[in-house]
Amino acid sequence: MTRSSIALAVLLAVLALLPLVGGAYALRLGTIACMYAVFALSWNIVGGFLGYPSFATAAFFGFGAYATGVLMTLGVPLPLALVATLITCLLAASVLGAVLLRLRGHYFAIASLSLVEVLREVVNNATDLTGGGMGLNIPLASNSSVLGDALFFFYAMWIVLALTAAMVIAVSASKLGFGLACIRQNETAANMVGLNTTLYKSIAFGLSACFVGVAGGIYAAWVHYIDPSDVFDILYSVKPIVMALIGGLGSPLGVVCGALVYLGLEEVVWRNYIQIHSGLLGLLVVLLLLFLPHGLVSLRTRLFRRKAGHA
């Protein structure tokens, strides 16, 4: 394990201690933090390692939310529904990836974006199964108190985050990760040295989808009610990109930090400037990217270089 992987593990361990110090509000925030970090880490596989600008996060999220939601209304217990969601998401995204990742650059971005719209419309129109635009009521997963409920979903989301982080660290140290880096740098050459680029891209797309889908499932069980415009919100696609850019493209530790910082900004701005919160948040993001184009992970080398300069 590299030093940044260890730092990431420590960060997650610290996050797991949140219930010791916070109440229901802190837990709600912590749950969203874990969810955002899952988004950012997952997006980083396709966006960071592979270098394809994906806008498909919201599609996986919505798909996972509805898959788990529908299964639960049919009486499947939550853990089983989540496992089924994971597997379906992995397989479906792998197949889609083999097709979509033939496109490059802007074309791929638009295609991944349209995936969100297509799924939204499918869910909207499959009224019998999903309730369509009326939304879907999901049975309660636990019958405990408010705080017990908050604790349950926080740890559920945290476990998904831990699994995602473990997967990402394993990928970045593996032959798969090496191959993805090859494809990002030069896809033609990668093909020419015997790398099955279609297979690698398809696996990458599948891995970047499966845990986002599970996070969607937990979200659905958590809020008890989902509708298409909520879970297929395009902002779920955009936010992980912003988080990854804030944190530092390609670095797992960086994107998790980016997710936490983004959530912090979002919450602070929303609480204090409710009227103009999106405008202000946008401005902050732009400023961050302008003055820190390589993200938070570049801070360390920057500070270090400055110190060396003084000496």
Partner: peptide, 12 residues
């Protein structure tokens, strides 16, 4: 094969 226009993995 080698390429007429060299195709390295630039960051590696």
């Amino acid at each position: 094969r080698t390429f007429q226009i060299v195709q390295p993995f630039a960051e590696f």
